[in-house]
Nucleic acid binder design. Structure first.
Lengths: 336, 336
DNA sequence: ATGCCTTCATGCCGTATCGGCATGACCAGG
DNA sequence: CCTGGTCATGCCGATACGGCATGAAGGCAT
């Protein structure tokens, strides 16, 4: 039962109704073809062709094979093509996990890009806690994670980081707050000294916590940390009441409750967003996603300056020339 | 792309997630299997399995192949099975041609038997003239013919006859006719002397014409032949009017216009009905039909005595013991 | 009717493929 | 650290496959 080649051979003969021409079409010698077809008949125990010296006619069984055979070959071909599509990342599935902070802009834009660039890849996205993301990626139950302030030295050996975005940080503050009420379009971290700062518990993502505190510390500010849960919207109430402020990245400006502003910190401070993947055994689809992510990052200037394309509802905007050395020179306040 | 065997091998490994066990299942040695799978990957240019010394995991492409592969194997198997079905006559198609005389009983019963015994064979039946049947069979445009009084010596060399039925002949006559009116349940051919006898033109089927005439001649009768066309029903009008009689086989009793009787001739006279086929290049389906026909003939006692199971509407019936030597001893008249 | 030409089949041979056996490399678990 | 299980590699013989040369058969033209 050595199969498809012989079927192909038979079909060529049955279509041409001539061994010699079929042999030419198949680029083999006529005697070889003659024997292969005979062998196929022997294997099946079925007479497929009635041969006379000047004519080749398929039997009824042969006609049946001639009708249905090509579909089988096509099915086989389609299977090989499909396998290749999976192998080179045109098809596949990727699981992506990210925190709420990435849920408003970074992840959606990545998903849109995947839908455009790699429509054959199914990305199943879920919002997860930082620690879960890293653990799941390490354990192999998650393909790709999207995390803020990941510290390579704090991660398992077998995961890898890819820098996706350097995100300008800003303060989320009530528009009635003294620091915002006078029409300010940025905030000096120094002004946060003594204020209540709403942050996730340090244990949730120590690196991120430390980075935020470092931004304040650099400016000499020592805010009073107020811990909030993981529920994004509900946790803004202390901010809305003016009792506290919080610090999130540029993408955090989206989806703010009304009455809240996102004001960039000046001097500019950035926090990095990384993709987390296993260092090996990544499927072609995952590799494809990494390439698409890189492209997305480039297109949105995620590594240079995130303030170039403000969303609707801008309160204040300064158009600036921007070069690589000048990251952070861009100010502007946004309101939803 | 040397095909399905390697796919089978891969599937075994991917299912077992273990080369050694898969090799056992396939009845080959593990190294051979290992190399075949590796070869498949090389051919496709695709990594299908991630091997560690103690674990075998399919890649995404491998999982895809694992999902869709079995369907391809099944499609291939189904194709081989189908071919075999055609080859051994379980499936196929046969064209059958017969004259009107066979259209009332012989052909229908054969078709019913085919439907029961070989439901996979499509029999396309058409009513044709005797000469057309023989010519078409010889030319290969008709697979099987059903003819009366075929003379082997008058047929082309490459057709073959199979005796299907020996049919008791009878006279179709008006019930008002003097020969029938007195309640006679058979007719001596001698009584036909001088009567008008309705027959197809001799050219239509010379053998049959001659046989009918011979039956009369043996009894010393010389009827006056009246030619009728091929339209069965319409041509009975001279008989219905009492102006003529005709002679047909036992199966001709069916479908007679009312007022007409079929009375067997006594002493009994038989005319043979044959299947005509090409002597070679017959498809398995045709051969199958020949076998089914033989069985049908046996079941209906077509070769020994046709009067054992009279239809409804019997006017007169004698129950008789019948043995092979006594063919023709059975009398009986039937009316529709 | 004869000879030629076309076509399919057969014989023979070199090469590639395949499978088996022996063995090596690697890793998990006791 | 050793043992057992697992997959990979080397080598060899058998089989399959394809090519070339040649044979057999039937149609067609002269």
């Amino acid at each position: 039962m050595s199969e498809l080649r012989r079927l192909r051979y038979f079909l060529a003969v049955a279509e041409e109704r001539n061994f010699t021409r079929a042999a030419e079409r198949l680029h083999i010698a006529q005697p070889a073809l003659s024997r292969q077809v005979r062998e196929l008949e022997r294997e099946l125990g079925v007479e497929l062709l009635v041969r006379t010296t000047h004519k080749v006619e398929p039997t009824e069984a042969g006609r049946m094979l001639l009708e249905r055979g090509p579909a089988l070959l096509e099915a086989a071909d389609s299977l090989w093509r499909g396998v290749r599509a999976f192998a080179d990342g045109r098809m596949g599935s990727v699981s992506l996990g990210y925190g709420m902070s990435a849920g408003y802009e970074t992840a959606p834009q990545l998903l849109v890009a995947m839908g455009e660039e790699a429509p054959g890849i199914e990305v199943s996205a879920r919002v997860m806690a930082f620690a879960d993301i890293v653990d799941s990626v390490a354990a192999g139950t998650l393909d790709v994670g999207l995390v803020r302030s990941a510290l390579p030295e704090a991660l398992p050996d077998d995961v890898e980081l890819t820098l996706l975005r350097r995100e300008r940080q800003g303060v989320v503050i009530s528009s009635e707050h003294p620091l915002a009420a006078n029409g300010a379009d940025s905030i000096d971290p120094a002004a946060l000294d003594g204020l209540k700062l709403l942050l996730h518990p340090r244990a949730h993502n120590p690196g991120h916590y430390d980075e935020i505190m470092e931004i304040c510390a650099r400016a000499g500010a020592r805010p009073e940390v107020l811990y909030r849960g993981l529920d994004f919207d509900a946790s803004y109430t202390p901010v809305a009441s003016g009792a506290a402020v919080t610090m999130v990245g540029y993408s955090g400006r989206i989806g703010l409750p009304s009455g809240l502003l996102w004001l960039p910190v000046t001097p500019a401070a950035f926090i990095e967003v990384h993709l987390v993947t296993r260092s090996e055994n990544n499927s072609p689809a995952v590799k494809r996603l990494l390439r698409v992510a890189e492209e997305t990052s480039r297109q949105h200037n995620w590594l240079t300056g995130a303030l170039e394309e403000p969303v609707a509802g801008v309160r204040n905007r300064r158009a600036l020339g921007l070069d690589g050395a000048d990251i952070g020179a861009i100010d502007g306040a946004y309101e939803v």
